[in-house]
């Protein structure tokens, strides 16, 4: 693993914190009725996407599930335009027509935001196919929830990716529950990444609560895929603090379980590391936190002041 610079450490901390504060604000706006529909928060899983972010090249592609706010922030998308989308406003990334689950940014090579469990996996494989077809040496990172690992199209995609040696890195975010069903109750066999073995796809388990473990694994896996060795699978063990969506009270798990994970909070791990390495002082880090809170507050204000889409917008973007 490449040595992380001082600014790398602070970038990691800032991004993770930004995602956390953004999601907390989203929960608040949901409670106030400004965000509707389904809203899946990323709190607890920040180390996964930020760890992977540290290994991404500009022209690489990313595609993910509906738990996508953190992914978009990590891909460099603007919090205010994400929040405007969540609140269904004209300034949102999809002009208010996609919502929480369906957000895209072509200029950032971010291909969604997909609401159907598993659908993003063949799609991400197809984006990787395009990278290979064009011979551009870029790769596609395709995120998969643990629930989708029981979905047939995922294995069809694995087979195609291995068969055609496609530059796709599959990242399973195993947060232990597919909605209310624990992985143990949904998936036969042992580790999820091992399901790639049948297709000759290598993979490994990664500690997703520790961003440094994620960076190390993602870097190695990214290099492997970029070298033209075909697909690879990372099964990142993580945990979502909140329910599946805003309407889920998460009664299927114990408070003790949740507390246990909160005690190894991914952001605290980074904070401790920064303090230990004397990269920044407590005061400096509190300042970063305050700045982020302010940025997210402004994003929320921007969203709530943004106009709703015009009537004409209903009929645009059906065809081009």
């Amino acid at each position: 693993m490449k040595k992380l610079s001082k600014s790398d450490h602070l970038k990691i901390y800032s991004y993770m914190l930004k995602i956390r504060r953004f999601e907390e604000r989203s929960a608040q706006l949901y409670g106030m009725g400004h965000i509707g529909g389904f809203c899946h928060l990323y709190i607890g899983q920040e180390a996964v996407v930020v760890g992977v972010l540290m290994t991404i090249k500009k022209n690489d592609s990313v595609v993910t599930t509906y738990r996508d706010h953190g992914h978009m922030l990590a891909r460099g998308l603007k919090p205010k335009k994400i929040m405007a989308e969540l609140t269904g406003r004209a300034d949102g990334y999809s002009s208010g027509k996609g919502g929480s689950m369906h957000m895209f940014s072509k200029e950032n090579n971010f291909y969604g935001g997909h609401g159907i469990v598993g659908a993003q996996v063949p799609i991400g494989t197809g984006i990787a196919f395009t990278h290979k077809y064009n011979g551009d040496k870029n790769i596609c990172r395709t995120y998969i929830g643990d629930g989708a690992m029981n979905n047939g199209q995922v294995f069809e995609a694995f087979n195609l990716a291995a068969l055609w040696n496609l530059p796709v890195l599959y990242i399973i975010e195993n947060n232990k529950y597919g909605m209310g069903t624990s992985v143990d109750r949904a998936a036969a066999g042992s580790h999820l990444y091992k399901r790639g073995e049948a297709f000759g796809i290598n993979g490994e388990i990664v500690d997703g609560m520790n961003v440094y473990s994620v960076i190390k694994a993602a870097e190695k896996a990214g290099d492997y895929v970029r070298a033209g060795k075909g697909p690879y699978i990372l099964e990142v063990q993580t945990y979502r603090y909140r329910g599946h969506s805003m309407s889920d009270p998460a009664k299927y798990r114990t408070k003790d379980e949740l507390e246990e994970y909160k005690n190894s909070d991914p952001i605290e791990i980074v904070r401790d590391e920064i303090l230990k390495k004397k990269i920044a002082t407590k005061n400096e880090m509190d300042k970063i936190n305050k700045e982020i809170i302010e940025e997210i507050k402004l994003a929320a204000e921007f969203a709530l002041n943004s106009k709703f889409p015009s009537k004409e917008e209903l009929y645009t973007d059906v065809y081009i």
């Binding site: 063949p122 984006i127 990278h131 077809y133 069809e156 995609a157 087979n159």
Partner: peptide, 17 residues
Amino acid sequence: PISEHGFTGLAVGAAFK
């Protein structure tokens, strides 16, 4: 292979790209 769901999704991804 005989994987309509998979290769159709793959083609859709290629078209997006």
